[in-house]
Structure formats: structure tokens, C-alpha cells
Design a protein around this nucleic acid. Structure first.
Lengths: 223, 223
DNA sequence: CGACTGCTTGAGAGTACTCAAGTACTGTGG
DNA sequence: CCACAGTACTTGAGTACTCTCAAGCAGTCG
């Protein structure tokens, strides 16, 4: 199950100096803030780019389209997360705001002009990229080998873990969830209903839920 | 949303200097060569690590296991490829030799002691990591949204493109292919049979094939 | 209040899986 | 050189899970 990059986990364990500095601080010293309203595109698929982004407020989805309209959402990003890390010549995905959001943008090639802070941010970007790759591998496992029930359970478990509170909000639609998990919107809906029936999660509204049986859910996800 | 002027003109993402230097040369100056025989493990899943690897000769698979035995192969690596790039605290996957192979190994944290060559290798590693992330996103799309037929077609197309010759060899078993594509071994076999029947590929033996209709195959894969 | 969008539920269809048998390749020993 | 065993691959039949198509329900906004 891929979880977006947690910046605070990015500190270099082998480099105590890096641990002392908040990546959020570094980025806000160098990046430029931009506002995006719900649904607005932050960058386009196949766009040539040299930028790196951080969510300051709101939420973002990175999605990829096939010519026939099939869509895959590579990940969701929340405050503190870096995104736009996949670098070929062009972005492999586009990124859109899930709700009104504020995004910090920095130019990679300009980082070297910012002295030590720029160097440290560059380091954090690389580290975050390595972790994102690890998460991408987890997500491949989910897509390749897990049942619809396990995928949805894993997804809700991740969202809840991210938010860390009793009740969690889903920033994305059922269609977004489906496109992230490689399912249809109907199957996502059915699995959520099933998870409720099985007493693993409880929904207050269709966008707000809590984990009702953490142990059983963890077992299911770890499987 | 208007883009600030200084962000708008993207610098050239590809640094021509970096491209001019062969990663193979740099790595062989710094890395230590090790031989692995067929099936032998190069590193283990969940192993804490500071190493980076390059295939010098042979082929490697990176795989990930769930506790119940379900397996996912994250990727296959050939001469010149870097692997072991996914970095959390531990490797998310294990790596095994697909055939007798020679692997170069270098310690990441030691690169800084190798002066300019070490610095360049570090740069190449980061570049490769970004590209690997892009490839991982492509593979997620394949796993989430493509049919068995398209997956196998895409896989054979990739292998052929890598080898660049009329006839291509499959270094891996059907089981490996199945675990890479999120299918069963029987389905992989059936799809290959189907691709032959449709005149898209031709097999000489079960491990050796050529693309018989490149245009139609490309259309199918791009879909 | 009605229209709209997003979510849920139901019935039937299709794709890929499971289980099982059969075939081809590889290496070893007679 | 051939027979045999072992492994890898292919093919077949039936099943199951997820998808498709369709309808119904719920929350939101003018």
C-alpha cells in the first residue's frame, strides 16, 4: 500500500544534522507559494519539468491517463509531502488539487544557488524519492496480488494512519479511490459496505469514517 | 493560476554532461565485483542496507513476498542497470540472480570518499532512482488497468526493446513473469499462445521469441 | 422544491483463477 | 545413444471474483 511521502520521516538516520532541520522550513524558505482551487491542474502529464512541489495546505492527487481514458492515480499527497519526484524527461503523471490547496514550488536546478539550505533540500528530495520508490513497490504488490476487499481495507487503514485521529476524512471521491486501487467505483462501494458489515470500519458519512477493529484490520492489511 | 515569471522557463532537465559519462565506467572504478549463481540471493527483503548495486553480467530480479507466500516482482535488471535503489530504513524487496551473474556493489555512504567520481556516481544513482520511480508508475498503470493480454504484450515488448535484437531471450521463468505482471503462470502461458496465434510475436522456443508485428504490438501496448 | 452530482445496490456477464492433465525440454545414468 | 526422471510449460474444464449496465438513494446547491 503506497502512502505519500511523509517529510518528517525523511530525516537521514545516519546524518544527525539533517534530523535537526525541518524540511518544511527549508522548503518554505526557497519555494514559491501558489494557490490552486479544487480540481485545478498543478502540472500536466508529459510536461517537461524541473520543478519539485510540496503541499502546504490541502490535498493533491497524481494521476496518469491512457489514451483510451483509463486512469491510474499514483498517489495522494497531504501537507508536508513532496510530490512531482518522478523524473524522466517529463512528468509521468499530472497532479491536481483535491480541494483548495496551497502548494510550494521550487526549481530543482535553482537549488544550488541557495547555498547550504538548497543543498539540504536537494538531499531531502533525493531521500524522499527513494522512499517514494519503496512505497510504489508496496503499491504494486497491492495492485498485483491483493483482493478488492484487502485493497480497500489497506487504503482506509493508510488514510487513518496518516490522519492519526479517531475519525478520518476522505479528501477524494470514490472514483479517485477506485482509480488508485485499480478497481471500479461500484466495487469500492461494495467493499466499504462489506467492511462496515464485518465491523472493521464505521462510516459517519460517505467521506468520514473510523477504524472500528484496528487489530483485525491490521491483520487483514498485513496478510 | 498565473505562474511566476522566474518559474516559467524550465531549464534543461537533462544535464548533457551527466549523460556523457557512462555509469558503467564510474561504478566499476568504485564498486566491488561479486559473483552470484542462479537463484542466489543478492540482498534480502527487510535487510537494512546502505548498498547500491549494478549488474555487470547476467540478470537480476527484485521480488517482494507477503507472509502468506504471495509474491510480486518489482523489476528485472540487466547489464548496466542499477538496482537496490528503494531506500527506507530497509530494502522493500529482495534481489536474486536469474542466472549466473556478476554484480558490482558499492556503499552509498562511502561515495563521498571517492572525490569527483564518487560525486558523479551519487548523481547517477539519484537520476536512476527518479527514473525508476517513473517506471514504477508505468507499471502500476499496467497492473491496475490493463488486461492480461495487454500486460503480456507490454512485457514482451519491453524485453525486446531492451535487447534491441531481432530475437530476444527471456532470462526469467513463466512464474517470474506471472509474478511481475500480477497474473498466474497459466494465464501468462495462454496469453503468449494467443499473441502467437494473432501473429504479434513468434516463439522459437519457450524462452526465445521475436516481435512479428511491431506496429500492431506498439498500438496494443500504447493503448 | 427540483435538478444535479455522487454514492450504493442489484442482476447478469466476462476475465482471470483453480485444479487437473498432458506435453516438451534438460540433464543424468545405463 | 537412449531411457528415464525431473522440471517447466501448455492446454482444458469449471469456478469465482470483479466488471458492466441499470436503477435507486442521498446529499448539495440554486
Amino acid at each position: 500500500m503506497s502512502t505519500p511521502v511523509f517529510l518528517r520521516d525523511c530525516a537521514d538516520v545516519t546524518d544527525p544534522r539533517a534530523q535537526a532541520i525541518s524540511p518544511v522550513e527549508i522548503f518554505s524558505a526557497i519555494g514559491v507559494g501558489m494557490n490552486f482551487s479544487i480540481g485545478e491542474e498543478i502540472y500536466a502529464q508529459d510536461e517537461q519539468t524541473d520543478m519539485v512541489y510540496q503541499v502546504q495546505r490541502g490535498a493533491v492527487r497524481a494521476s496518469r491517463l491512457l489514451v483510451d481514458g483509463r486512469r491510474q492515480i499514483a498517489g495522494f499527497y497531504y501537507p508536508g509531502d513532496l510530490f512531482g519526484l518522478e523524473t524522466g524527461l517529463t512528468h509521468r503523471a499530472s497532479a491536481e488539487a483535491l480541494c483548495d490547496s496551497r502548494i510550494l514550488v521550487a526549481r530543482r536546478s535553482a537549488l544550488k544557488h541557495y547555498g547550504e539550505a538548497g543543498e539540504r533540500l536537494e538531499h531531502l528530495i533525493w531521500r524522499a524519492t527513494g522512499q517514494e520508490l519503496g512505497r510504489a513497490q508496496d503499491h504494486m504488490m497491492l495492485l498485483a496480488r491483493k483482493s478488492a476487499y484487502e485493497r480497500v481495507a489497506g487504503f482506509l487503514s493508510d488514510v487513518a494512519a496518516r490522519q492519526g485521529e479517531a475519525w478520518s476524512e476522505l479528501a477524494m471521491s470514490r472514483q479517485d479511490i477506485a482509480d488508485h486501487l485499480g478497481l471500479t467505483i461500484e466495487t469500492v462501494s461494495r467493499m466499504i459496505t462489506q467492511l462496515q458489515a464485518d465491523g472493521l470500519v464505521a462510516l459517519e458519512s460517505c467521506r468520514r469514517f473510523r477504524i472500528a477493529a484496528p487489530d483485525r484490520l491490521t491483520d487483514l492489511v498485513a496478510a
